[in-house]
Design a protein around this nucleic acid. Structure first.
Lengths: 349, 349
DNA sequence: CGAGTTTGATTTAACGATAAATCAGAGTAA
DNA sequence: TTACTCTGATTTATCGTTAAATCAAACTCG
């Protein structure tokens, strides 16, 4: 077992051959060097005994490949994977990378701007990168692309981009939820969403407004709260929304975390969900099925999205995707009806 | 910006110096090579213009350091960071590594056994590893130690081990919760816990039994469910527990995930929490404050634990901890009283 | 029996960075 | 003038691996 310092040279010395022969044996068929069966066995036995493992740095340097995929999250304060969305996506990425034989590197460096950060991400530490839900204000994707780094983007900030990745069909997702509410007789539907720093959030907001207009439903003053940030105290704002003179009978939250906050606000305001207020979330993150009542939400296959992004990236890295062109997968969300939505209450007036 | 292929040699060529001079300039004071101010400036300017970034593989090979910390979770099926515990710990590790300038590598390789996996983890890809909550049946820690890999273990499987890391004082944690229940007048306290594959879980179980014995409280048949696994359908077992002829008035769950399941079971059985049944969890994972009622639980500073493990490991890697000996931090949990515990109901009989 | 092929290797030269040793020239002192 | 120091570099060697070229001996064939 030693202290992990077994090199090809050491094996070669003990086997009485050159290092190249050892390399050829341990790399199987990728070399054109011929080796006699007897020599091969001797070397394989030695390698197993000494518990040889190729030095990843040396191999990476020579092969110009690291068998590692970098993942880049947007930092929020001092945290990166602080929510269930990121966690599930990462879990999927790990699984996808695992099947392809790649490891995952989490860059702890923040992306500031092309000028400030580009160099740090061009250190050849990884064969490619997965960028998760970049902000629209960021130049990460453009920057990394320009550096020639193979990329896959999850929930890209650019529509129809030529960057491969996995995007969400927010139009379908929102419409699914809104139609569901409409079918339940709701006409007073409010929208709460986070600060639209990400395209998805802006889109969800837009689709809501468009859908409301198309259905000729009014969006009264105060019905739209589109700059809420989890972590800050949202309760006052949400309670104000629910206490409006003509309060909404349904609230569509742009993500589950906010939906949970709405549930909380409803409780303090004394509105029972779903009898007096319907709540719809988005993402179907783990907590959605743990709340009381369980959350009706728009399901995003986050784990699978991570897996697919990894597969896409690996295909790109290994040059298998040239023929298929820039492959952007569009994910169609699914409506999951649970217990937080019900028929609209009878109108009082 | 080019395609990220700027090497020291390229800069040297353009600056009209040797690569060594460039290396000396860009590495600041770590070299003993003297460089004239004018030359220094010229090189720095060029490096900035060309957006030079040292090749991490080459540097790693030469320096025998990678500035990367490996993290090893135990796989559960095809998932690794599938729960809030892992997520929060990892988030903390990332933060801790970030401040020390280290990146994080998630090995996608599973640890099977010393014989099967040791080599794969000795590939010099990382400067050290953090092992998160290993199973007692696993030989990871011993194996990696034998390979000479600097280690930090979170929630180790070995008590008082000589491996640095962060351990949990389960004795204090459980006692805190049990005393709380006792103070509320509970005498019929049940225990539910996951299969004791991890030392922590076995300990919590043991402390429960010991505490009950010390307080001369009976542990009736069926009061202990110590091999439940999240993911499987636990509801039947939990409902059976709550429907026992002489049912518990309080249930202590060895982790929050199980506590949530207990809450669910209570709901279907028709027991109101906390009026008819008190529930205590363990970990204080994110969901604990989102359930209805909010969970009384034993708080573990998971994020901070991750940070500390990273710091500990970095200290060890950089040789700063030799004087302090094997540093094992013991984390004292904290009781967080929320809404799932209340005075024991009056006895019926 | 000499020319060409097959087998089983070896040698050489990188990959990019850096530790350590060496070196050329100017300045200083005896 | 000779010896020594200081400045500002350069050269050399190496980290461990592997692509590509080369090589020696045995074997085949006309």
């Amino acid at each position: 077992m030693k202290n992990g310092k077994v090199t090809l040279g050491e094996i070669a010395r003990q086997a009485g051959t050159s290092t190249m022969t050892v390399s050829a044996v341990l790399n199987g068929s990728r070399s054109n060097t011929r080796v006699a069966d007897e020599t091969r066995k001797r070397i394989e036995k030695l390698a197993a005994e000494l518990n040889y493992s190729p030095n990843a740095m040396a191999r990476g340097l020579r092969r110009q490949r690291t068998d590692t995929i970098g993942v880049l999250f947007t930092w929020a304060g001092s945290r990166t994977i602080h929510n269930l969305y990121s966690m599930t996506v990462l879990d999927g990425i790990v699984a996808g990378a695992a099947t392809a034989g790649y490891h995952i590197l989490l860059y702890t460096q923040r992306w500031e701007s092309v000028a400030a950060s580009a160099a740090a991400f061009a250190d050849q530490r990884t064969d490619g990168m997965i960028v998760v839900a970049p902000l629209e204000s960021s130049d990460v994707v453009a920057g990394l692309t320009e550096l020639g780094i193979p990329l896959a983007v999850i929930s890209s900030s650019v529509k129809d981009s030529c960057v491969p990745g996995v995007n969400i069909d927010n139009d379908t997702g929102m419409t699914l939820g809104l139609d569901h509410l409409a079918a339940l007789g709701h006409t007073q539907i409010a929208y709460v969403g986070p600060t639209p720093e990400r395209r998805s959030m802006r889109e969800r907001h837009d689709v809501y407004l468009r859908w409301m207009a198309e259905h000729e439903l009014p969006v009264p003053e105060g019905y739209v709260l589109a700059d809420l940030n989890i972590g800050e105290s949202l309760q006052p704002d949400l309670e104000r929304l629910l206490r409006l003179p003509e309060p909404p009978t349904a609230v569509f939250a742009a993500n589950d975390d906010l939906a949970v906050e709405v549930l909380e606000a409803a409780r303090t305001v004394g509105l029972s969900v779903p009898e007096q207020l319907s709540v719809v979330g988005f993402d179907d993150v783990l907590v959605a099925s743990l709340t009381t009542p369980k959350l009706t939400t728009i399901r995003l296959p986050l784990y699978e999205m991570g897996q697919q992004a990894a597969q896409l990236l690996v295909a790109r890295i290994e040059g298998r995707s040239e023929s298929e062109g820039p492959s952007v997968q569009i994910i169609s969300p699914e409506l999951i009806v649970r217990d937080s939505t019900a028929a609209a209450p009878a109108v009082h007036s």
